[in-house]
Simulated scan of single mutants.
Amino acid sequence: MSGLFKNVSISMQLYLISCSDSFEQLILLVKDLNLKLGNIRLDPYNYADRMCRLAFEECNNAKKLQVDCLTSPDFNSNFEEIPQFHNQMFRAQLPWFSMKHVSQRFMNCKEIHLERPTSSDLELNEFLKIWIEGSAIKYLTANFRTDIDTEEVLYGIPAVELPSVFIKCGSGIEKKKYNQCFVIQQSNGTDGVICADKGRRFKLSTVFEIENGEKFGEEETEDPMEIDDDSSEDRRVGG
């Protein structure tokens, strides 16, 4: 029977803590029928340790994964036992999430957006060094809680400073001009540009354009299947 659903993907958007059971049932269904996970968005209103942990254990191959969960102080954020992630897009707003997590488990994702992660200049420096060695990440944006010291972040990394660059920060996003940028290069020859906009907003992109008109990277065609945003019809599950 599973062969009938070979090319079927399933998407889900959950808001309430009582949806933990529904989410677990979804995961079991996906496994039983050998389905693909499409767009998964978890945005519960209350503590959701179980749901959050399940997402990190089972949704590493979902097409797009967004996790904006409140977790208790007892939540185990150790990622050593979870799999590598291969999401086309990963978004997270988690107070304990850091660039160390990205370096350990998310280097095979294509696009990453983080809101208020905890991190240090050293962790960001280590992430960039791993990215240079080889990574699928095409876009990464992070709005950190503290200012970034660009000199510390780029310590030991060959970089060319440019006064301004037009940077594409994600799929479906138009290029925007940013100042004081640095071009770095992966070991395979792929160029990337980084900037720390307003001190805390860090950006890494492989799709950009410099002032003389030279373009780097290929702009993709956005897939029409998207996660519903908050302006769409209310589709809460559970209660």
Rank of each mutant, 00 (worst) to 15 (best):
N179C: 09
F106G: 02
L140T: 00
G199D: 10
E115I: 06
N34Y: 09
Q186I: 06
N39K: 12
K129M: 15
E151L: 11
A196C: 15
T146N: 11
M107L: 15
Q185M: 12
I112Y: 03
F106S: 00
F166L: 12
R53M: 07
V102R: 00
L94R: 00
N125V: 11
N61H: 05
M225Q: 05
Y15R: 08
G239D: 15
C52G: 05
P117V: 10
R53N: 10
L122S: 15
N39T: 13
L14D: 03
M225D: 10
L70W: 07
I27H: 01
V30W: 00
A196T: 13
S119Q: 11
V67K: 03
G199M: 09
L124I: 13
G156R: 10
K110A: 12
W96Y: 13
L114H: 04
Y15S: 05
S11V: 07
P73K: 07
E81R: 12
M225T: 12
W131E: 04
N108L: 13
D229R: 01
L154T: 14
N34H: 14
G170Y: 01
I137M: 11
A55W: 02
V67P: 01
K203V: 09
R236T: 14
D149I: 07
E58R: 06
R235S: 12
P83M: 06
A62N: 01
I10M: 14
Y155P: 00
V165A: 14
E81T: 14
C181E: 01
S11P: 05
V8T: 15
G170T: 00
C19V: 01
K175V: 05
E151G: 04
G199T: 10
D49K: 05
I137P: 11
I167Y: 02
Q25T: 13
L128I: 10
Y178F: 15
E233F: 15
I194H: 03
L37A: 09
A92E: 00
G172S: 03
E218N: 08
G192H: 02
I40E: 00
F5E: 04
Q66G: 10
G199Q: 11
D43R: 10
A196F: 07
F202W: 13
L16K: 14
G213P: 07
S18D: 15
I132A: 07
Y45G: 09
F216A: 01
F208P: 00
G172D: 06
V67G: 04
Y155M: 13
S22L: 13
F85G: 01
N143K: 13
T190W: 02
E209S: 06
I82Y: 06
L124Y: 04
Q66F: 09
F56K: 04
K63C: 10
L14S: 06
S205H: 01
S9W: 09
N60S: 14
E214D: 11
